[in-house]
Amino acid sequence: MCLGIPGKIVEITDETRKLAMVEISGVRRQVNVACILKEGEPLSSLIGEWSLIHVGFAMSRINEEEAAETLKVLIMLGEAQEEIRAMRESAVQL
């Protein structure tokens, strides 16, 4: 819950609610991107960006290489599997 997991923003799904679809290790999930949006920046510019995703929120932009390395370590720690399980088993999906 605290380590988060890297995800790639693939689509903007809701402009007003600042929601985007991210791809996390092959799993798709809607997340809120309000935290990583710079002032005046259009949401669409986030497409293709990587970010650390914490409990449904994109919290910090990272580069692709970082993302891959981080994911490797999270898989080793068992955290990535935990996160993905938590997403899949969530009582309801946004």
Partner: peptide, 28 residues
């Protein structure tokens, strides 16, 4: 119910307008 994100809890509230949805927020 276990949720991955508080956003999921909010979604539960949208889908169940006759019930009260409480999210237990914890963490730093």
């Amino acid at each position: 119910r276990m949720v991955y994100s508080p956003l999921d809890a909010l979604e539960l509230a949208r889908r169940n307008p006759d019930e009260e949805v409480v999210f237990f927020g914890l963490g730093f």
